[in-house]
């Protein structure tokens, strides 16, 4: 009896210990190892060196990542928010809601590598866009669509039912209600959802590998050309082995820092978990 209590207690402390320890370890490890690599030139210069990436910086990869992410968010956010609004406010048919929910669930279950395959076949080959930011951005957009939709729907769902019915009772259309009440009062949560979706897209590699991210490119000027991306760059540096480990730490540092900052902003906007 006593032993069981102790055993469970040990298990509990072990579980939380491992979890929090891992979080702390990952961030401290990357920040500690990466900090010595970070310098203005690392952030603001292009990669160079006999084996690419052993010297120089990662500027094109940072800008490239912003391009990929921006494209994905621009394509995904309107569709995701519209779907959430449709389900919450406009759809009067319950069966339709079920269908929409299962469509969104199914999309969220598609592995990101398969989305890469899709974008390659559809955009790179069939539409003839070639490897470019738009091709990858589309794959990323599909990937983050359910992510944003779920959060937007949750935000809309928290509006009080009576408030919506009061607007109906005044004879106002749902469109008017959505624009005047729902959007303004969920603004922060929506922005937060979009930023988090952006973080998710920024860290994803599989959809980019063969659709638009390349080992070396200069800073992109349009979404119709290929570009470098931080996660892809990190992968290539690691794959090259020991020679480029320093820059790999630096790249990981920049990615984690970017994502951490954006996450904190998003959390501050959306309020901590309710």
């Amino acid at each position: 009896m006593r032993h069981l209590s102790k055993l469970v207690k040990l298990w509990a402390f072990l579980g939380i210990g491992i979890t929090l320890g891992t979080v702390a370890f990952i961030f401290l490890f990357i920040f500690y190892e990466g900090a010595s690599v970070i310098s203005p030139s690392f952030i603001l210069e292009s990669p160079s060196g006999a084996i690419l990436g052993t010297e120089g910086g990662i500027f094109p990869a940072i800008i490239g990542s912003l391009f990929f992410t921006g494209t994905a968010v621009a394509m995904s956010a309107p569709a995701a928010v519209a779907a959430a609004a449709y389900i919450t406010f406009f759809c009067k048919n319950d069966r339709m809601k079920v269908v929409l929910h299962s469509v969104i669930n199914t999309i969220s279950g598609i592995p990101s590598i398969v989305l890469g395959l899709f974008a390659y076949s559809f955009l790179v080959k069939s539409l003839g866009l070639g490897r470019c930011i738009l091709s990858s951005g589309t794959a990323l957009a599909v990937m983050i669509l359910p992510f944003i939709e779920i959060r937007a729907e949750k935000a809309f769902g928290e509006l009080s039912e009576e408030m919506i019915r009061s607007s109906d009772a005044l004879g106002c259309s749902r469109t008017y209600m959505f624009l005047k009440i729902a959007l303004p009062s969920c603004k922060r949560e929506l922005i937060s959802a979009v930023i988090l979706g952006g973080c998710y897209a920024m860290g994803a590699t599989p959809p980019l590998i063969f659709t638009g991210a390349v080992a070396y490119a200069s800073v992109p000027e349009s979404i119709f050309e290929p570009a470098m991306a931080l996660p892809m760059h990190l992968y290539l540096l690691v794959a090259q082995g020991a020679t480029s480990m320093d820059t790999a730490y630096g790249t990981a540092f920049v990615m984690l820092a970017l994502i951490l900052i954006l996450t904190i902003i998003a959390r501050a906007l959306g309020g901590f978990r309710k």
Binding site: T19, L20, T22, V23, I26, F27, I30, L196, C199, Y200, M202, G203, A204, T205, P231, M232, L234, Y235, A252, M255, L256, I259, L260, T263, R267, F272, R273
Partner: peptide, 14 residues
Amino acid sequence: YSVIDLLAGIPSVV
């Protein structure tokens, strides 16, 4: 929770 959630934000390549 919000500390643990940080794990979810780390890219898989990292």
